[in-house]
């Protein structure tokens, strides 16, 4: 169960998130330009659709799974400190 949850979550670290963001923008913008260019040069709008959808599939495959490249900078948390000693004091009501 935990394993399934972990696959669905696919958590990545902060550096990985920054990289994923950049890759999403770059791949999709380049795909759009290539799609327009392909349709224009071949003079048929179907090539625009094909190139555009292929590039989008590529973007999904590159960004969505938690590839190792996105988990290279794991956060190291400060270890949990030992609980401080607590002295219990009885407080008596003074009349």
């Amino acid at each position: 169960m935990d394993q399934i949850q972990s696959v669905i979550d696919g958590f990545i670290d902060f550096e990985g998130q920054s990289l994923a963001e950049t890759l999403t923008t770059a791949i999709l913008v380049l795909t759009g330009i290539a799609a327009f260019g392909a349709g224009w040069v071949l003079s048929d709008l179907k090539y625009t659709v094909y190139v555009g959808l292929s590039g989008t599939v590529l973007a999904f495959l590159a960004v969505v799974p938690p590839w190792p490249i996105y988990t290279r900078n794991p956060l190291t948390w400060v270890a949990i400190a030992a609980p401080p000693e607590v002295v219990m004091v009885d407080v008596k009501k003074e009349m």
């Binding site: 990545i12 994923a20 999403t24 999709l28 960004v63």
Partner: peptide, 14 residues
Amino acid sequence: MYSSPARVQNVFGF
């Protein structure tokens, strides 16, 4: 972009 569902949403949105 922390989790996979968030990344799916981001890619689809753009």
